[in-house]
């Protein structure tokens, strides 16, 4: 959950998606300070790894400053805190072992990539892998829950049917 500061007011909490949406819509600018639990201090949005792609989109680098495309070599951005990109490995293992669907395996593969990408300094790639791991784990859990729910309804109908038809 993110908080952001605008015109001296602290606003939020918002999810990452909601804040990205606001950034794209121009309601939050890359220089606005944002914070979430776990960060030691407020940071300009442009320096927070989760929003680097978003803020880059909404504000192209100004022309006239020797307009070289902003293709920086991979490196840890100033605001990066070790451990701030979760790998969801344990969650994906639980989903794989309990949910009986291959989604969990996809999630584990993405989860395994997170720490390797972080070690290479690819924060954007690691964040993307982290998000994929989370998405596939949720997909596995949700589809399993749905199937179990449908199954239980059938069991219930069968039980009621048996009771209604009598001996």
């Amino acid at each position: 959950m993110w908080y952001y500061s605008r015109n001296g007011m602290q606003l939020g909490p918002l999810s990452t998606e909601e804040l990205s949406g606001k950034a794209r819509g121009g309601e939050v600018s890359p220089s606005d300070l944002i914070w979430k639990e776990g960060m030691p201090d407020w940071k300009p949005m442009a320096q927070v790894p989760e929003f680097q792609s978003t803020s880059g989109l909404s504000n192209p680098p100004p022309v006239g400053m020797g307009s070289v495309p902003m293709q920086q070599p991979p490196m840890y951005p100033a605001g990066y805190i070790p451990g701030s990109v979760p790998n969801y490995l344990w969650q994906s293992i639980v989903v794989t072992v309990l949910c009986c669907l291959p989604f969990g395996v996809v999630s584990i593969v993405h989860a395994a990539k997170v720490d390797s990408l972080l070690a290479q300094g690819d924060i954007v790639g690691a964040t993307a892998a982290s998000k994929s791991a989370k998405t596939w784990a949720i997909a596995g859990l949700a589809s399993w829950g749905l199937l179990i729910g449908i199954y239980l309804i059938f069991v219930l109908i069968a039980v009621i049917g048996a009771a209604a038809s009598g001996p």
Partner: peptide, 9 residues
């Protein structure tokens, strides 16, 4: 993490 992924597959 990589070992876990490989072992599971």
């Amino acid at each position: 993490a990589t070992v876990v992924a490989v072992v599971v597959i």
